[in-house]
């Protein structure tokens, strides 16, 4: 495209540009941007499920109430635990798997890529119900194996015990989170500049040195992206909790995402739920910004 465009050409570009964009923009504005605006606005009101009842502006009341709500605080705590545990584990695990498979031939490489991606494709409901059976106190495979292995002597009620419930949820979340990072890391590692690696090897660098000094630096943008998507994913962990524990026992698995759903559907408090949504969004934005900064500085 020439740097200086005639006014006629510029007009033509404007019109055709927007015409091509229009269908997508209608959906994007209508079903993403407008609801986002509504989310912020509703968080300052007492809106409920029924669109016919008048809603009142309540200012910051929802936000003030949140910080005094023990269920919300428990949910916030659990959400942070989930993120803090799953994000590093997912990154480290997928980086290890990717570095172990990326030099394989096309056949085995796609086999492993597919296997680790399968839990994502299987769908959250199918995955959740089978894990529910595996965790079952009486017929579950975990209790059977641990008892036969002599590790436990009494069946454990995995999902019904405050000590274990959150860890059980995190384990399932991990298996459904590594698929995409592995695909990304495999592609990043195969794109690492090979001449640098060879030069370092000629100079007598060990594998570990080559990895951390050269490859790690080159795959940094991918790591950053994986950190952000895994964080968002962990925040959104919902189906597991709704289908397995409903946030229980005694709020041991309550998360912000589940509490948003609960406020809207069980308490019928849309305004309150949206205030949580706004906080969640701010939280994720702040976290992404921090991760971005940290990765950039290195």
């Amino acid at each position: 495209m020439p740097a200086t465009m005639s006014p006629l050409l510029r007009r033509r570009e404007n019109i055709s540009g927007y015409l091509f964009l229009l269908p997508s923009l209608v959906f994007f504005l209508g079903f993403v941007v407008v609801p986002m605006g509504m989310c912020i606005w509703m968080s300052f009101t007492n809106a409920n499920m029924d669109i016919n009842t008048p809603t009142d502006f309540v200012g910051l009341a929802n936000y003030v109430e949140l910080w005094k709500d023990p269920v919300f605080l428990k949910g916030l705590r659990n959400t942070i635990i989930i993120v803090v545990v799953s994000v590093p584990v997912v990154c480290a695990f997928s980086l290890w798997v990717a570095s172990a498979i990326y030099r394989m031939k096309e056949g085995p490489l796609s086999f492993f890529r597919i296997v680790f991606y399968l839990p994502v494709v299987t769908g959250s409901v199918a995955v959740t119900v089978v894990w529910k059976w595996m965790y079952n106190r009486y017929y579950g495979i975990f209790n059977y194996l641990l008892k036969n292995g002599g590790i436990i002597d009494k069946n454990i009620n995995w999902l019904g015990d405050q000590k274990y419930a959150l860890a059980c949820i995190i384990l399932i979340l991990l298996t459904t989170s590594v698929g995409q990072p592995i695909v990304l890391y495999v592609s990043a590692l195969s794109n690492v500049d090979h001449s640098l690696v060879e030069a370092a090897e000629v100079d007598g660098a060990t594998n570990t040195q080559v990895f951390w000094r050269i490859k790690w630096a080159q795959i940094m943008p991918t790591t950053l992206y994986i950190l952000i998507i895994t964080t968002i994913n962990s925040f959104q962990c919902f189906a597991l909790i709704q289908l397995l524990t409903s946030g229980g026992p005694n709020y041991a698995t309550e998360t912000i995402m589940y509490y948003i759903y609960y406020s809207a559907f069980k308490l019928q408090r849309f305004g309150y739920g949206n205030a949580m949504g706004v906080i969640l969004a701010l939280f994720i934005a702040a976290l992404s910004a921090v991760q971005f900064r940290l990765a950039r500085e290195k």
Binding site: I232, M257, G273, G277, A281
Partner: peptide, 12 residues
């Protein structure tokens, strides 16, 4: 970059 679920209540 925003979690999709945040907008689901307004979507209803």
């Amino acid at each position: 970059a925003l979690p999709k679920q945040v907008i689901l209540i307004p979507l209803i």
